[in-house]
Design a protein around this nucleic acid. Structure first.
Lengths: 129, 129
DNA sequence: CGGGATCCTTTTTGATACTG
DNA sequence: CAGTATCAAAAAGGATCCCG
């Protein structure tokens, strides 16, 4: 081995496509929690709003739409007296559960970063003149 | 059990803390890819910039700082002729690899959503007058 | 009840330019 | 090489009003 220019020969694979595709989905603040609450079974729109009290209707709708378009959740309208809509994980959505579990598992061991972004750092002295 | 008000008794657990903590980290556009490229071994700042050609120095620095503060990567300054800095996954960071793998695995089966989010973005019509 | 449409604020990212 | 400082743009999220 003469003069190794770089220790690591090359990145194994460029995971841009699948990684990007999936993170577009899970990247939001709410999506993983949403999937978490759907794992126990189908849930209605308003139940989800109770599960995640801080989410706004708009965002919840938006996330559910994304998940639906990607085949992760199914949307079932039931013509009851007050109309109700049920969301449920599809089999494909079920494949996301191990991901969520892994995230939760590791998340518990991560340092929680006391101050999100403290930066007094180099406060430029305002010119006195 | 008389009159079940809701089908699903209750959400199993509220994973807000670990889930939120971890997603704060993985939620970004670049972080998962960054970890991907670090998995093969330590890598220098400029190598990472080659691995991810589209990332800006600022964002790369920012992500690396986050990962460092949470104990996911280590930062090693080596006083070589041109100074070089090596980033590497810590053992804790290694625990994130299964997560990444799972994401990639599922990501490949997700529908890619033909139009991610077409938004001609309300190009404010410049007033013709 | 279950959303769609707007408008607005906060957070993230990108593009440069500059420094040790 | 390895960043930091600043500003501008974009995206994500939230608030509100309205509709079937």
């Amino acid at each position: 081995m003469a003069l190794r220019v770089r220790k690591n020969p090359a990145p194994p694979e460029p995971p841009d496509c699948p990684l990007g595709t999936c993170m577009k989905l899970l990247g939001g603040v709410w999506t993983p929690n949403l999937i978490w609450y759907l794992r126990a079974g189908p849930r209605r729109f308003s139940e989800l709003r109770v599960d995640l009290p801080k989410i706004s209707a708009k965002v919840l709708t938006s996330r559910l739409r994304d998940l639906e378009e990607r085949g992760v959740v199914s949307r079932t309208v039931r013509p009851t007296s007050p109309p109700s809509v049920e969301y449920a994980l599809t089999p494909l959505g079920g494949e996301l559960l191990p991901v969520i579990d892994a995230i939760v598992s590791v998340g518990g061991r991560l340092k929680a970063l006391a101050q999100p972004r403290r930066r007094p750092s180099k406060r430029r002295v305002p010119p006195a003149n």
